[in-house]
């Protein structure tokens, strides 16, 4: 009996010491990386291709902690002020061994098609506040799951901010069959990307018949403005003074269309 009591006492003491040391070191391990600045987040790099805007954020982790870091997951969710999900991106790193390091890039992608399909086209035309939820999950020593999350309020710059097509009230006769209509097309590019592509203006009369067409290349650098005075020739017989203008933009950013009314 006494020996078993002694054995239990020793087992209990050894387990106490081992558990306390492991608990303290494993919880301090990720904190050590932060305090020693072994986690570096690079500056975001914007780019776009095939109708998808991508912000790439490079990050570097040097695991100077006491244990391996496994199942590292960086997840970002972007939502608008109405909590509509704009995009979700995840970057995973299987394992960062103790003493090892990792260089990865987390890409936040927003597809124009997604914006249109989720009825978020206002984001293309108006600046807005968006919320970026960042969540980092990892496993310390392959045993303890840890998750750190935060929300960041960000401002979204619309690529076609304040887009407008203004048509002169009084068309001028051009020849016996056509009027010439003066229109002013403009927008400000508040996005971090350059907007380059083709802008097509289609003028419809009130019977929704196409009466005029104008196509041109547009270019608005990030933070810049596009403003153009255009002359569109419309058929005299079909011009009614009121109708709609369909503006259709196509470029590496994707395809976007919006409508404006004129006259009336």
């Amino acid at each position: 009996m006494r020996q078993s009591i002694r054995a239990l006492g020793w087992a209990s003491k050894i387990l106490w010491i081992a558990t306390t040391v492991f608990m303290v070191t494993s919880l301090y391990s990720p904190l050590k990386l932060i305090l020693e600045r072994q986690i570096d987040i690079g500056s975001p790099q914007p780019s776009f291709s095939n109708g998808t805007m991508t912000v790439s954020i490079p990050f570097f982790i040097n695991n100077t902690g006491f244990y391996d870091i496994s199942d590292l997951n960086v997840t970002t969710s972007t939502t608008d002020c109405n909590s509509t999900l704009i995009s979700t991106s995840t970057t995973s790193v299987q394992n960062i061994p103790r003493g090892g390091s990792v260089n990865e890039t987390h890409a936040i992608s927003v597809s124009i098609d997604d914006i249109i399909s989720k009825n978020l086209t206002y984001l293309l035309l108006h600046d807005a506040a968006i919320i970026l939820d960042v969540s980092v999950g990892l496993r310390i020593a392959h045993l303890i799951p840890l998750r750190v999350s935060t929300s960041v309020d960000m401002s979204w710059g619309a690529p076609f901010y304040n887009a407008s097509i203004r048509i002169a009230d009084f068309p001028e006769p051009y020849n016996s069959t056509h009027y010439s209509i003066t229109a002013w097309s403009s927008f400000e590019n508040h996005s971090p990307f350059d907007v380059n592509g083709t802008l097509r203006l289609e003028i419809f009369n009130e019977r929704e018949e196409i009466i005029g067409l104008w196509i041109d290349q547009v270019s608005a650098p990030s933070g810049g403005e596009y403003s153009e005075k255009v002359i569109i020739y419309v058929r005299l017989s079909k011009f009614s003074g009121t109708g709609e203008v369909l503006a259709y933009f196509e470029g590496p950013l994707g395809s976007v269309e919006w409508r404006f009314t004129y006259g009336g």
Binding site: L15, T19, L27, L143, I144, S149, T150
Partner: peptide, 19 residues
């Protein structure tokens, strides 16, 4: 900015209960 931390310490708790 507010930071939320979540850790699953059930393994530790099990060992502490065992001790």
């Amino acid at each position: 900015q507010v930071i939320h931390i979540f850790a699953d310490l059930r393994a530790f708790l099990a060992v502490l209960i065992l001790i």
